[in-house]
Design a binder for these strands. Structure first.
Lengths: 267, 267
DNA sequence: CGCTTTGTTGAAAAGAGTCAAAGATCGTGG
DNA sequence: CCACGATCTTTGACTCTTTTCAACAAAGCG
C-alpha cells in the first residue's frame, strides 16, 4: 500500500522534484532533502492543516489557503495540488495570514519548522528553491487578479484550465479532481462569484460545448479550445514538461488507501 | 539638491532600510549593500522601467506592475512606493510576467542583474531579505484577491487605506500621491471597476464623509474611520513602526528636482 | 433510510458596465 | 501671458450582468 497519490514516487523524491524546478539543487541538497524527516499522515476533507508552523507537502488530495471575511464568507487565495508545498511559510519571523485547509481527503507530509530551518541553513539551494516557489505562487495570485477583472464565463473557464493543467502535471486524472475537491462552492470562493451564478455559468459553458457537466462532475473535452476561449497560457504556472501519456499509464494514479483499508477518492 | 524623495537618506541607506525589515542583515551585508552600484536616474510618468533585467529601487514617485489584456485593458497587479524594489525579479531563470512602469514622474536607482547576482551570491542575508520581500508582495496580492470579492465601495476604501498607509511609511505626505500618481483610472485598473463607477463610488465615499475630494485630489480626514469601514488591517503590509510626526517634520518631503531645475511633484 | 451536502431553477432587485458628451486641469509652446 | 491640446474628471441615461431570496431535487454517507 504505497498510497502514492502522486505517482509511485516516494514522498522525498516528490519533494526533490518539486524543489528542483527552481533549477539550483546540488547533489548534496538532494541528499539532505532525502534525509529530511517527513511526517506522513492522512487527512479528512475540510481539515485545517496548519496546526503547527511547518510546511506541508501535499501527497494526494487538494488543499487551499483561505481567509474568512468579517461577513463570514470564505475567500480562497491559493490552491495546492499534490506535490505542492504549503503552510505558514515562515522561513521568516512572521507567518502568513489566513489558514490552510484540505478540500478533499488525502495525504500530506509534514515538515517541522525546526527541521526546515536546519535544512535551509545548511543548504542554500533549498532555500533558494523555496523562494522560487513563493515567486510562482505570487505569479499565480497576480494572474488571478488579472482574471478577476473579466466576465464570469471567462474567469471560470480560466480557472478550470488552470486546475486541469496543474492536475495533469501531477499525473492525476483530471476528472477526479472535479469529482472530489472542486465543488461549485469552491469555484465561487475562489472567483468571488455567487454560488448560484457559478452554477449558471457552468451550464452556459456546457451549452457552448466548452465543458461537460455530468452529475456535478466537470470534464473538459478539449482543453485547447477552452484555453483559447479563456486566454489561458500556462506559462505563469512554471510547470515542468508536460506529463506524457506514458506516465499516465504507469499506474501512477491510484488513490490513497485509508488506514482502515477503505479506498478513498483518487484525488 | 539631494533630491531625496524618501527622506534625506541617501539611496543606499534606503535600500538597507528596506531589506533590513527582513530582520536578517548582518553588518557585512549592510556594508556590501552600501558598496552596491546604484544607477540613479529620473523617469517621467508613464515610462516602462523594465528595459533591462535588474531591479529598481523607487526613490520617489510611484510605479506599478501591470499586465495588458487581450482586450487592451490594463490590469495593475502591484503598486510600488518610494523605497520599494521592483523589476523582473529574476534571481531565477525566468522573469516575471507583465511590465513595470511609473505612474508619476520620479527617480529610481537601477541595480544591474549582474551586480545583484554577485551580491546575493556573497551575502545570504541579502538573498533572504529579497525572498522576504517577495513573500510580502504575495501577501498583498492575496489581500487584493480577498478584497476583490467585496462591494466597490469597500474595495476602493480599502485600497485607499493601503495607499495612504504605505505612503506614510515612506515619509511622504499622502495627499500628494493622490495628486499625482493615483488617477481614478489607476484605481479602476487595480480594482477592475469601471472608471465611471470608480468616480461615482468616490463621490459616494465623500458623501458619507469618509474621504474628501477636491479637484480630483483625494484626502482622508480620518484614516481610522475609513479603515473601520473597509476592514483594513495594515498587518499584511509588514511595515516598520509607523513614521512619527518627528520624521514628517524633518523636511523629508521635498520632491525631486529635475535636472533642468524644474521642481516636480513631490511624490 | 433519514440527514447533510451539493446541485439546480425561477423571479425580482441591485449593482456595475457602457455609451456619449461636457467640464476641468495642466503642461507646453507660441 | 494666453491659447491649445492632452489628460482627467464628472454626469446622465440606458442596459445587462450578477446577486439575492427562496425553494426543491439529487446524491452521498452513516
Amino acid at each position: 500500500m504505497s498510497g502514492a497519490g502522486i505517482g509511485g514516487l516516494d514522498m522525498h523524491a516528490w519533494l526533490v522534484r518539486r524543489l528542483e524546478r527552481g533549477g539550483h539543487l546540488e547533489e548534496v541538497d538532494r541528499h539532505a532533502l532525502f534525509a529530511l524527516p517527513l511526517q506522513r499522515r492522512f487527512v479528512a476533507a475540510r481539515t485545517d492543516l496548519d496546526g503547527g508552523q511547518g510546511l506541508h507537502l501535499i501527497l494526494s488530495g487538494l488543499a487551499c489557503r483561505y481567509e474568512t471575511e468579517p461577513g463570514g464568507f470564505r475567500r480562497i487565495v491559493s490552491l495546492y495540488f499534490p506535490g505542492d508545498l504549503c503552510g505558514s511559510g515562515s522561513l521568516f519571523s512572521f507567518g502568513r495570514p489566513g489558514s490552510v485547509k484540505t478540500l478533499s481527503a488525502g495525504e500530506v507530509a509534514d515538515i517541522s519548522i525546526h527541521a526546515l530551518h536546519s535544512l535551509v541553513e545548511a543548504h542554500r539551494g533549498v532555500e533558494r528553491s523555496l523562494g522560487w516557489l513563493t515567486l510562482i505562487e505570487l505569479g499565480i495570485a497576480q494572474r488571478w487578479l488579472v482574471n478577476a477583472g473579466r466576465d464570469a464565463e471567462r474567469q471560470i473557464a480560466h480557472l478550470l484550465c488552470e486546475i486541469v493543467t496543474r492536475l495533469r502535471a501531477t499525473g492525476c486524472r483530471e476528472c477526479e479532481a472535479f469529482a472530489t475537491g472542486i465543488r461549485q462552492a469552491v469555484i465561487a470562493d475562489i472567483t468571488a462569484i455567487s454560488l448560484v451564478h457559478v452554477n449558471r455559468v457552468l451550464h452556459a459553458l456546457q451549452d457552448a460545448d466548452r465543458i461537460r457537466l455530468v452529475k456535478g462532475v466537470i470534464t473538459i473535452p478539449d482543453l485547447d479550445r477552452l484555453a483559447a476561449f479563456a486566454d489561458f497560457d500556462p506559462g505563469y504556472l512554471h510547470l515542468p514538461d508536460q506529463v506524457g501519456p506514458s506516465q499516465l499509464e504507469l499506474g501512477l494514479l491510484r488513490g490513497p488507501s485509508f488506514p482502515d483499508g477503505r479506498n478513498s477518492v483518487a484525488l
